[in-house]
Lab assay of single mutants.
Amino acid sequence: SDYEVNVNGIHHRFHNISEELIKFIEEALRRGEDLREIIKKVRELLG
Rank of each mutant, 00 (worst) to 15 (best):
H12Y: 12
E27M: 09
E4W: 04
E26G: 07
H12N: 02
F14H: 00
R13N: 15
L35M: 08
V5L: 06
D2A: 04
K40H: 11
K41H: 10
E4P: 03
K40M: 12
L21M: 14
V7M: 07
L21A: 12
V5F: 05
I10T: 12
N6K: 08
S18L: 03
A28V: 05
L35A: 09
R30H: 15
E4D: 13
R13C: 15
L35W: 04
N6Y: 09
E4K: 02
E19F: 11
A28D: 07
S1K: 14
V42A: 03
N6C: 06
V7I: 10
R30A: 08
E27K: 10
L45R: 05
A28N: 11
R31D: 11
V5M: 04
R43V: 12
I22K: 09
I22Q: 04
K41A: 14
I10C: 07
R30T: 13
I17E: 01
I10N: 12
I17G: 01
G32I: 02
R43Y: 15
N16G: 14
L45S: 07
R36V: 11
I22E: 03
H11M: 14
E20C: 03
L29N: 04
Y3W: 08
I10K: 08
K23W: 12
I38H: 01
R30N: 11
G9Y: 01
G9H: 03
I17N: 00
L46T: 13
E4R: 01
D2N: 05
E4A: 04
Y3A: 01
H11E: 12
H11W: 14
K23N: 12
R13W: 15
G32C: 03
N8E: 07
Y3K: 02
L29D: 03
F14E: 01
V5S: 01
I39Q: 03
F24S: 06
G47Q: 11
L21P: 00
E20A: 12
E20G: 09
D2L: 04
G9L: 02
F24M: 10
S18E: 03
L29C: 00
N16Y: 05
R43G: 15
V42Q: 00
I10W: 07
F14A: 00
I39H: 02
R13Q: 15
F24Y: 14
N8I: 03
G47H: 13
E26K: 10
I10S: 07
K23M: 14
I39A: 03
E44L: 07
R43E: 15
L46Q: 15
K40I: 13
N16W: 06
L45D: 06
N8W: 00
R30I: 09
E33P: 03
E26S: 07
D2Q: 04
E33D: 13
E26Y: 06
A28Q: 15
L46P: 03
V7D: 04
H11T: 15
I17H: 01
E44V: 08
H12P: 00
I39F: 03
I10H: 15
I25L: 04
V5T: 02
R31P: 01
D2K: 02
E44G: 05
K23C: 07
R43N: 15
Y3F: 11
S18Y: 02
N16T: 04
N16V: 02
E37I: 11
N16A: 06
A28I: 04
E4S: 04
L21T: 14
F14G: 00
H15G: 10
E44Y: 09
S18C: 01
L35P: 11
L46H: 10
E33N: 09
E19V: 13
A28C: 04
H11Y: 15
L46D: 08
G9P: 00
R36S: 12
V42F: 04
N6R: 08
S18A: 05
I17C: 03
E20Q: 08
L46K: 12
R30V: 13
D2S: 06
D34H: 10
R43F: 12
I38T: 05
S18G: 08
R36G: 13
V42C: 02
F14Y: 02
L29T: 05
G9I: 01
L45P: 05
D34N: 07
S1N: 11
Y3Q: 01
E19K: 13
G47C: 05
K23E: 13
R31M: 14
S1I: 14
K41P: 01
I22T: 03
L35I: 12
L29E: 04
V42W: 03
F14L: 01
V5Q: 01
D2C: 05
E27Y: 09
L21K: 04
G32H: 13
I22D: 00
K40Q: 12
Y3D: 00
L21W: 05
I17S: 02
D34Y: 07
I39D: 02
K41E: 10
D34W: 06
D34K: 07
V7T: 04
N8K: 05
E20R: 10
G47I: 12
R13L: 15
I10F: 13
R43K: 14
N16P: 02
F14N: 00
E33I: 12
F14M: 00
G32N: 11
N8P: 03
I39L: 04
H11F: 13
F14D: 00
K41N: 11
L29A: 06
D34F: 08
R43P: 05
V7W: 10
H15I: 08
L45G: 06
K23L: 13
L45V: 11
D2T: 06
L29S: 04
H11A: 15
A28S: 13
N6L: 09
R30Q: 13
D2E: 06
V42T: 03
N6H: 10
K41L: 13
E20W: 09
F24K: 06
Y3L: 06
F24P: 01
E26D: 13
H15T: 13
E44R: 07
E19W: 11
E44N: 08
K40W: 11
L21H: 08
G47Y: 08
N16L: 05
E26C: 03
S18W: 02
N6T: 10
I38R: 01
G9N: 04
G47S: 11
D34E: 10
R31E: 10
S18K: 05
L29I: 13
S1A: 09
L21F: 04
E20L: 07
V42Y: 04
I10E: 14
E4F: 04
V5W: 02
I22R: 09
V5C: 02
N16I: 02
K23Q: 13
V7Y: 06
I10Q: 13
I38S: 01
I22W: 07
N8A: 06
R13I: 15
I10A: 08
I17K: 00
D2G: 04
I39K: 03
E27G: 09
D34T: 10
E33Y: 09
H12K: 02
D2F: 07
S1T: 14
I38P: 00
L29W: 05
I38F: 02
D2M: 03
D2R: 01
